[in-house]
Write a protein that binds this DNA or RNA. Structure first.
Lengths: 236, 236
DNA sequence: GATATAAACATGTCTAAACTTATTTATCCC
DNA sequence: GGGATAAATAAGTTTAGACATGTTTATATC
């Protein structure tokens, strides 16, 4: 089976990836099976080995193939369910929906770091960091609660920023690029304070996203986002 | 700046990616800046252009760089927060924690598809599909609720499978590979039935994951997973 | 000045060949 | 049989060179 000589102008790798995917989906190659090696596929498809390599690496990233040196390439036994979550920038998300964005600072002070955030940041609990709490609004209705800890050691310039004017999220995005980030997702019942700020009933289920970013100086910031009840995060 | 001649044995692309990342993090190259083109970087690093290309494509995937033909490569203005969520296979997750896995079928029948699932699957509401409801247990304590719709048109073999013996999740994973999947995450208060099955109080916040898979014949299955309160999904 | 056309350019992709590295398989020795 | 060692193998990576493809910029034309 050679590539259709006309069709693929400069996307042979993608074509090959599709073809391999098809063979897996149609169970021509079954879970656990070893598939032909790169050199062999290169010949059957009439392309260079590097091109096959690119295609197979793509499928390996997707989780469809398991590749090991010398052992060859196999169809993954338990295709793991991976999906890429995108946490949008609040303001952009709201404005993209044609709504008016605004935000309000609830608190901005130095406080000792609680244990949960300390764990996420890899810092000692009780360390005094900058603590920000904000509400983000769409058309003056609460959209998201933000509870953020900022490590001035990693972002010295932060001292001189006035977050009453600027959105902390955006300032950090623009001024504190990160090397590494961790993220987790959970659900929690709104406590009394959250209910008041989000203008909902206490106990309603909130989607919670925790995100911590790091640069070479250490943890930059750890933020807990609590979304309006019913909010859906979509993954690709 | 040439690569340290000794260190990188066969990982120059990664080294270059790290170096570019460093320059961005240290604000040598700032958000929105155009960075030198591939040919130039290839010379400064003393490698082939293909190697630079690989490194920069990596960073573009990470969302750190914006690349456009002819226009060149720029540091992303608004680094989007992307993270890869992995939804583990229940049994493996439970057994990996050293617990005993078991499951129970609550219902298994043909029913008309409700609107929400129909939307996700791209099918007409009311269409009669196979409907499965299960509880997964760890050490005999409820761990996860599963509410699944299966499209027999995409998986004809399903008719002959006895899910009282086999876990539907695993059967599908092994026997119905998919082309494409969609996933979303939200939070919901446990209703009375969910509370009973999960042995929790009604109203507790549950993390909900909806996942739909497709193959070339159409939607295969759409599943709603409701996790125990407090469950955390971790993204990389 | 507006608009079509051509040139320039940076990234995108592919190739063929070489070398590296992890891992398996075979072989030899005890 | 057990264990160390060497050979074989398949993927991982890099290179230099080529051509393709979008985009921008400059140029010519109306």
């Amino acid at each position: 089976m050679t590539l259709p000589p006309k069709i693929p102008p400069a996307a042979k790798a993608l074509f090959i990836a599709d073809e391999v995917r098809r063979r897996i989906v149609e169970r021509e190659w079954r879970q656990g099976d070893r598939i032909p090696d790169e050199a062999e596929l290169a010949i059957t498809f009439g392309v260079a080995r590097a091109t096959v390599n690119k295609a197979l690496q793509l499928l390996a990233e997707e989780g469809l193939l398991d590749r090991r040196r010398r052992a060859g390439t196999r169809v993954t036994l338990n295709p793991v369910r991976k999906a890429t979550l995108t946490v949008p920038i609040v303001r952009e998300q709201i404005e993209a929906a044609g709504l008016t964005y605004s935000h309000r600072i609830i608190a901005s002070r130095r406080s000792p770091l609680p244990a949960s955030s300390a764990r996420r940041m890899g810092l000692a609990a009780g360390l005094v960091l900058l603590h920000l709490r904000e509400v983000h609004y769409a058309n003056n209705r609460p959209w998201q609660l933000e509870d953020r800890w900022i490590n001035p050691l990693a972002v010295p310039e932060i001292e001189s920023v006035d977050f009453r004017v600027l959105n902390s999220n955006e300032w950090l995005v623009r001024n504190a690029p990160y090397f590494r980030a961790t993220m987790d997702v959970t659900a929690a019942n709104a406590d009394r304070r959250e209910a008041r700020l989000l203008e909902i009933r206490q106990g309603q289920a909130l989607l919670i996203v925790n995100r911590t970013t790091f640069n070479d100086l250490g943890p930059i910031t750890s933020v807990r986002l609590a979304f309006q009840p019913g909010h859906v995060l979509t993954a690709d």
